[in-house]
Design a protein around this nucleic acid. Structure first.
Lengths: 353, 353
DNA sequence: GTTAGCACTCATGCCATTCGAGTGCTAATT
DNA sequence: AATTAGCACTCGAATGGCATGAGTGCTAAC
């Protein structure tokens, strides 16, 4: 009996929290008890709502900008809402189809797809959107080619399983005959195919130590070339679109300093990637709210990420949305989720054929 | 006699305009006659300065935010200043060396150099900086290679004279034997080398019309492949860095709407490129001030560009700085100029070897 | 041509005031 | 025991009056 009443009152509390957050999200104004009472169909008076609101405030979910104002969700409040209160929506098949159409590339190129993905996400969500793209470095060797382009220069072409391609101009010490080049390519494509790019150098080094290797010279040359090529290859690339959506939000109009801090963070791609790297290995949508983002100046923002994988062997990446903390989480969540699925499927299907 | 007095008074007028602009640039505050009188060593009274200031105002070079405020330069005032008043500085050899060091790439890759160029420019100038990079499409064919990567897919590698490389995965209709591929590559590299990439398709089409061409099949196949490869190849790429510097300027702190408009413009890369395309063909530094930029919302900004060329045959690009109209033009000018020269030399020297 | 002197303008900052949205508390009601 | 009406209270936002002072334009004298 007591348990029933507890869940009942819990349910009501959550409902009220939901109304407050929904309202605050759409108006950016502190929410008063009167308004909640009106939105809540069950005819409770504003006084009762007020009692519940103090509970929610004591629980750390709400706060007041000042004594005579309505309530505003705290970071913890948003967190609880996202984890336990909001009802997760799904995009309609129609909306999903729209995404599919918009990310369809002219040629199946990872970069192109994910550039499109971030643009699409930004436009549909009216928020800043991003995509982290795995490069060859995260994948396994499908093919390696060397094209001589001048006396001392080679073009080293790295092709990963998902047909991600990276090219690097490598300056070689000494000269290289045509036959040598052919032998080298043959060696690379018989010995290294299927290995992760990340382990190539290590593998070759191990073979170098096993001295009497009859391929010693080939192994050494391969190592030199790949060392150069992989050194300048980034592990992932970042696309970012629609930063302008964010600064049009009232919280940033009020406080230009926040805008500056935010843009400084976005300018420093490396710092951003460092944050996103963790999310790429999660296996579902992740939400980071306000201070959770962990960057001092940007506690007014939240971001959501959804990971994807390219084929079975391929590297992993993520798409995401960045906006003010006060954002429509259910909608944003469904969007990044759908986008990640579309990207995965696009390359999964591809991989199957 | 009268001519001497005219130039004299002209000279004084310009000097006063210079002082006003310099002062406004560094403080963002309207400049009063008293302040100018103090900065101008020749002991003229503020009253005289005021008389000159009305002249300058009537000439359209200055304006007053309101009756009881100092003067502020108009767009036309900046324009006159940039064209005729400011004394052009040169960067010290030391500063130039710093730039050279910072843009030195690990491997000689156009993208890498110009990414570094825009980052460097942004950091040194404390302004947003950009670089427009020519792609293969603007250059001439040095080498073309085709690598089969699966039954129906080729990797088409386009190498331009300056060793700019572009790769495209092309899906081919029907199958292609190994011999065919070899013949095709030989054809491409004997018939097309030295031609501008922009004219390849045209050239091939002309040969197709000359029906009895013994290579008919090869020509047709080449056309198909190159058509796909070139279709998705952009003509230029844009690097943009340090947008955060701009929004920290007082004009944007005061008016968040301007910030929004500016970022919207920067978000739309295509529109931006359209603007920059003209400047790339100029043969010196170009300055666009306020409304001259031609974008309704961004009349608080100016940008400078300096073109560069990659080698002799290579495509042209530009580096530039974007900041508030109220910027240190002499300094910015010397910086973009030096940067463009460094980039040109880096590739020029390269090309010579 | 230059300058001292002066009246005039107008944005800015400051203070007092009002206004009202929203609260917390208490006592009455269900 | 939960809900609610009633009410005093708080405090930000908006308003208006007022003093301040920076900077101007004009005039008359140098």
């Amino acid at each position: 009996m007591s348990s029933i009443s507890v869940t009942d009152s819990d349910h009501r509390r959550n409902k009220i929290l939901e109304i407050i957050i929904d309202s605050y999200v759409s108006t950016a104004q502190p929410v008063g008890s009167e308004l909640v009472a009106r939105k809540l169909r069950s005819s409770l008076s504003s006084a009762t709502i007020r009692n519940v609101m103090v509970e929610l405030e004591q629980a750390g979910y709400l706060e007041q900008p000042h004594t005579s104002a309505g309530r505003v969700p705290t970071d913890q409040g948003y967190r609880f809402y996202v984890d336990s209160v909001m009802n997760v929506r799904q995009l309609s098949p129609e909306q999903v189809r729209q995404i599919e159409v918009r990310i369809q590339p002219k040629e199946l190129d990872v970069d192109e797809v994910l550039e499109r993905a971030s643009v699409t996400l930004a436009e549909l969500a009216h928020q800043a959107a991003f995509a982290v793209v795995p490069t060859v470095k995260q994948s396994t060797v499908k093919q390696i080619e060397l094209l001589p382009i001048s006396a001392r220069k080679l073009l080293c072409v790295l092709i990963a399983d998902e047909e991600i391609v990276a090219t690097h101009v490598v300056e070689i010490s000494g000269s290289m005959t045509r036959d040598e080049a052919i032998a080298l390519v043959r060696f690379l494509n018989t010995e290294l195919v299927g290995l992760p790019f990340g382990m190539l150098l290590e593998t070759l080094e191990r073979r170098l130590l096993a001295e009497s290797d009859s391929f010693y010279y080939l192994v050494k040359r391969s190592w030199e070339i790949l060392q150069h090529a992989l050194a300048t290859e980034p592990t992932e690339r970042l696309f970012m679109e629609g930063a302008s959506y964010i600064v049009s939000q009232p919280e940033f109009r009020r406080d230009p300093h926040k805008t500056h801090e935010l843009l400084r963070w976005l300018d420093a791609e490396d710092a951003l990637l460092e944050h996103l790297r963790h999310d790429m290995e999660a296996d579902g949508v992740r939400v980071h709210i306000g201070h959770e983002v962990g960057v001092p100046g940007v506690d007014e923002c939240s971001y959501l990420t959804a990971p994807f994988r390219l084929g079975l062997t391929g590297g992993s990446g993520a798409v995401g949305i960045l906006g003010p903390k006060r954002m429509d989480y259910p909608k944003m969540r469904s969007m990044v989720e759908a986008m990640a699925r579309c990207v995965s499927e696009l390359f999964g299907r591809q991989h199957a054929t």
